[in-house]
């Protein structure tokens, strides 16, 4: 853990060396995510509601998704760019070091540009939150923090699938992306607006509903399920479980690993 914090600190420092370039790229990410927000606003201005969800509620879900996803990309760059790592044969160097393997991969890189995306997500949540007149309590704030953490682990787990595939096929496989980026596009809306198959996929297989939609719906005062309060604290753990499972599979892949050589 100490090693992780140290490494992340160093990465932030190195990113700060090119301050002007960093500011530009953060700004670019901000504009891009704001553009996606604009698209949702355009839809809401025409249709007023998505199913039984009002504009404020939809905006809050959007904010949670953008913030969690961008945070994952910020800290998970080591995993998202893992296929290149393997292709260049640089993974071999990590195996030799006496530190936990996955931790090393995770902290090998950082993507500070994503701060722009996180900012837009937070703004969306703040604006939507004030429109919905949420009375904030400590319980709600804690649950929201857990939601973001759980969702980050879920997305990181999805990125790990791609990383694991790279052990078996040197070419990156585009199809694996559909759960990650498809999930990002689909699940910025609560799952219950989708028909059975997609709802099943994003509730049980890639559990965005458990990590995000169920607890968030309780936070904004429009619960999708009638569960007792404590149960909402349990469902985001699905993200942690998903991540743990993918870590196991990734380590199985490591055992299969043959270097591409240099």
């Amino acid at each position: 853990m100490k090693y992780m914090i140290h490494a992340v600190k160093m990465l932030f420092k190195s990113a700060m060396q090119y301050r002007a370039s960093l500011v530009m790229q953060v700004l670019a990410q901000f504009v891009m995510t704001a553009g996606e927000m604009l698209a949702v606003v355009v839809l809401l201005s025409r249709f007023k509601a998505v199913g039984h969800w009002g504009a404020g509620e939809i905006m809050f879900f959007f904010g949670v998704m953008q913030a969690s996803f961008a945070l994952t990309e910020l800290f998970g760059r080591g995993i998202t760019s893992f296929p290149w790592f393997v292709q260049r044969g640089e993974f071999d160097a990590l195996i030799l070091r006496p530190r936990p393997l996955l931790t090393q991969v995770l902290v090998s890189q950082l993507d500070p540009r994503r701060i722009g995306g996180v900012t837009v997500g937070v703004i969306a949540m703040l604006v939507a939150g004030s429109r919905l007149n949420i009375t904030w309590t400590l319980t709600k704030a804690l649950l929201l923090a857990e939601v973001v953490l759980g969702s980050m682990l879920l997305v990181l787990g999805l990125f790990l699938i791609e990383a694991t595939m790279s052990f078996f096929s040197v070419k990156s496989i585009e199809m694996v992306n559909i759960l990650t980026y498809g999930g990002r596009t689909a699940c910025q809306y609560p799952v219950d607006i989708f028909p059975g198959v997609l709802r099943f996929l994003f509730t049980y297989l890639a559990p965005f509903a458990m990590c995000m939609h169920w607890p968030v719906s309780w936070v904004i005062g429009a619960p999708m399920l009638s569960l007792p309060t404590w149960a909402y604290f349990l469902t985001p753990l699905a993200g942690a479980a998903f991540f743990a499972l993918m870590v196991r599979i990734w380590y199985m892949g490591v055992r299969q690993y043959r270097s591409t050589g240099t």
């Binding site: 585009e174 199809m175 559909i178 498809g182 596009t185 689909a186 809306y189 607006i193 989708f194 997609l198």
Partner: peptide, 13 residues
């Protein structure tokens, strides 16, 4: 595969 998946997501929406 990607395009069909995204197409269906938008259509359901």
């Amino acid at each position: 595969v990607t395009q069909v998946f995204f197409g269906l997501v938008y259509i359901f929406l």
